[in-house]
Amino acid sequence: MKTSKTLLAALTGALAIGAAAFAPVMPAHADPAAAGQEVEVWKSPSCGCCGGWVKHMQAAGFTVKVHDIEDVQPVKTASGVPDALGSCHTAKVGGYVVEGHVPATDVLRLLAEKPKATGLSAPGMPADAPGMDMGTGQPYDVILFDAGGGAKVYARH
């Protein structure tokens, strides 16, 4: 009897896993506001943390189109990212630039509020930002910047 119950439990678990493989992929924490929003990302093909940020954005519900390129600097320059706010990858969404490891919640807020700005940046490579995920507890700021050189703290994490 015990063997039958164990076998039944194993089969039930296998069926659930098999069914999940065919279910639509929409994480439970995905924001419906991100659905249909395409984020276009330019990054180095060898950058693992950039890939982590891409996965973070996808998990939030964004559609992500990745451009693997060897030199991202020309994209940053053409997009108006000040050198002081640079990071490892550059993205565009909804007419804004997103530089570096900016959390999806901040991108969603940007798209909802639609401020007059060029975009957002998480300058450098903050240890605990999405994609970096080092768990150091080190705070970091996300900066809202404009084409005129203005910049202010948009969010603190």
Results as ranks from 00 to 15, higher is better:
Cys47Tyr: 10
Pro103Gln: 03
Val41Ile: 15
Cys49Met: 02
Gln138Met: 14
Leu11Ile: 14
Glu70Phe: 07
Lys65Ser: 14
Pro130Trp: 02
Lys43Val: 08
Pro27Arg: 13
His89Ala: 05
Glu38Ala: 13
His56Ala: 01
Ala16Val: 07
Asp83Ser: 14
Val39Ile: 12
Thr136Phe: 00
Ala117Asn: 04
Thr136Ser: 05
Ser46Phe: 15
Lys2Cys: 07
Pro126Gln: 00
Gly148Trp: 01
Glu40Val: 15
Val98Ile: 14
Glu38Gly: 10
Asp31Val: 04
Cys49Leu: 06
Ala59Cys: 09
Asp141Tyr: 04
Met26Cys: 13
Val97Glu: 04
Gly36Thr: 09
Asp106Glu: 11
Ser4Ala: 14
Leu108Gly: 00
Cys50Pro: 01
Gly36Ile: 12
Asp83His: 10
Met125Leu: 03
Pro32His: 14
Lys116Gly: 06
Ala104Gln: 01
Ala33Asp: 11
Lys65Leu: 09
Tyr96Met: 05
Leu111Arg: 10
Asp141Arg: 03
Arg156Asp: 01
Gly18Glu: 06
Arg156Ile: 00
Lys43Gln: 06
Ala23Arg: 12
Lys76Glu: 02
Ala23Lys: 12
Lys116Ser: 15
Leu111Lys: 11
Leu7Asn: 13
Ala104Glu: 02
Cys88Lys: 12
Ala60Glu: 03
Ala104Tyr: 04
Pro139Met: 08
Leu7Glu: 14
Val54Cys: 00
Phe22Leu: 11
Lys116Cys: 00
His67Thr: 01
Ala147Cys: 04
Lys152Met: 10
Gly131Phe: 00
Ala104Leu: 05
Met132Arg: 03
Val93Ser: 04
Pro45Ala: 09
Pro139Ser: 06
Pro82Lys: 06
Gln37Arg: 13
Val81Phe: 11
Pro103Trp: 02
Ser87Arg: 12
Ala10Asn: 08
Met1Ser: 14
Val102Trp: 12
Gly137Asp: 04
Val64Thr: 03
Pro24Asn: 09
Tyr140Thr: 00
Pro45Phe: 07
Ala84Asn: 10
Leu120Gly: 11
Arg156Ser: 10
